[in-house]
Design a protein around this nucleic acid. Structure first.
Lengths: 192, 192
DNA sequence: TTTATTTTAAAATAAATGTTTTAAAACTAA
DNA sequence: TTAGTTTTAAAACATTTATTTTAAAATAAA
């Protein structure tokens, strides 16, 4: 009963996420989001509580619907080939001219500007990616695709470290074209 | 003639830089800077023009007085040992509990939030570091410390890429302790 | 001492920010 | 039809923001 809502929560979150991704949390105003989504502030606050709640919902949406498919590669291929495809995919994304980085990692440099809850979402996301990579590398080791003496946890950390590097280095429009060249270096370091 | 100024420009810039480093450009208000420096807004605006001018001065100060000494290692030791010391130094900085990243690279994810001039300062700084590393690696190659078939420009890019990775990955308080382990991996990739 | 000049402290401004309130609109159940 | 409920549109709110103005304070030269 009551007046029916004129919006879809998911559509609103999707657009809000886009604004946060583009501008970052602090440089995004509620007005920006209202303008982009067409939703009024009252409904916005009723649905999400406050700006932090909206950002938190945007982070969840990003994990579940935007970046999820990208690291699904690691779930579907929990082995060396999966890791290779994953890294190629990350590099491919960074090559685009409109590259915006990663909504999560973009906010690492402003960890204390976002809410503690959001900061934890970011941390948990990165940890999750790392553990997926590690699982794949453990299998790769069992497959004999990487040396038996290799520390898979450390290799996984290094790979995610390089993803972080991509997120930042990929912002140099004039330099990012070299990133794909790092693929062989990184994979060699993992294999041998 | 006229009333003598009660502040030292350099001291003001130094403190302002600290606030920008801690909070980032967008999350730093002039009030924050005024509170920290003790300088009044009128003198602030007379000296720096506007917030962007102040930030620009802070970036210059960072380059010339804070981070300069760190990559002076590369000037004083333009060879493989210099590159090794430089990287160890970067990793050492990230190990600190109060690690704040790099004032320049911290703002790469918000390149369009800062002024075009500031964005250029950031880009120029990173390019400068990279060219210093490359010069050192070219010498290292001449010294026979790295393979004659190695692409020194690409290796320099990779090293700076890893510095970018450090700046972001170093924000994971629970994970950053693994970063020093990457030293051997990266240097091996450069050497062999 | 006066005048000119510059900095300072403090107040003022205008716009933007995050958030809340008010009242009208759109629906359901009685 | 009415009463009850929820969403909406619009305005209102208090705070913060970047910036400017005003007037007092501190100096040097005339």
């Amino acid at each position: 009963m009551g007046r029916p809502r004129s919006y879809s929560r998911e559509a609103v979150v999707e657009k809000a996420m886009g604004v946060f991704w583009q501008n970052g949390y602090k440089a995004t105003s509620i007005s920006d989001v209202v303008r982009e989504t067409g939703l009024n502030t009252a409904s916005m606050y009723k649905e999400f509580g406050d700006k932090e709640g909206l950002f938190s919902a945007a982070l969840d949406h990003y994990r579940d619907h935007v970046i999820g498919p990208r690291y699904r590669i690691l779930i579907d291929n929990p082995n060396l080939e999966g890791v290779e495809m994953f890294l190629r995919n990350v590099f491919l994304g960074a090559a685009k001219s409109e590259y915006k980085g990663c909504l999560m990692m973009n906010h690492l440099a402003q960890k204390h500007v976002i809410s503690p809850e959001a900061a934890e979402q970011v941390g948990a996301f990165c940890a999750e990616v790392e553990s997926l990579v590690e699982a794949a590398l453990r299998n790769a080791q069992a497959d004999g695709d990487i040396g038996p003496d290799k520390d898979t946890a450390q290799l996984a950390s290094f790979l995610v470290f390089c993803v972080h590097g991509t997120v930042l280095y990929g912002r140099h429009d004039e330099k990012k074209h070299v990133i794909p060249n790092f693929y062989d270096m990184i994979m060699r370091e993992i294999r041998e």
